[in-house]
Amino acid sequence: MNKILYEFVHSERFAIFLIFFEAYNTIVIPSCYFCNKANCMKTKIISPFLLAISIFALASCDSSSLCLSGQSAIQSGLYSATSGEAKDTTLSGIYLWGIDPITELDKGLLIDSADVSKMFLPTDINRDTSTFILREETVASDLYDTLMFVYERELNYVSGDCGFSYNLRLDTVIYTINLIDSVTIDLPTVIYNENLENVKIYIEP
């Protein structure tokens, strides 16, 4: 509550409100501000209450800054190798998980997912590489591919409330070609609060 009030008191809305409030008291009816007239007392008594009520009403609408999570994720789109980037493609029976060389991470990002046309690949910001296994399991086939993203990290100050993030610059993608035909980097920068596709993954027909 204190933080919300602090933010509000330092916000434009509060200042604008105060200016209008005092403009009313001082410029529109100046005699009611710097005087002792009896009919001014009403304004003097009521106005603090109006101000207090208004502040509470406005403060309740104020929200703290929004921090975004997963902002170091590479965004990828799936495309058909035969149709090119003009036509995206969808896959079913998709599994996706990351490979951590030390902790042997075994947690699925996608598990038997259907109609997958885009994938968000969270990067390991402790390292300069992130490796993923992409698997498509269908009745007819069970194909695996490995994707390794190599990137540079740059520490980025977001805000006092949200702290820091890492911006990335993709250098290379190394991959196997069982399910995947090819991978291209369209947008090498992965930046906080930017929602753009970074890589295109072309799938074998």
Partner: peptide, 9 residues
């Protein structure tokens, strides 16, 4: 500073 990353840590 701590940068939160749910998947990798």
């Amino acid at each position: 500073y701590t940068i939160k990353e749910e998947y990798w840590g």
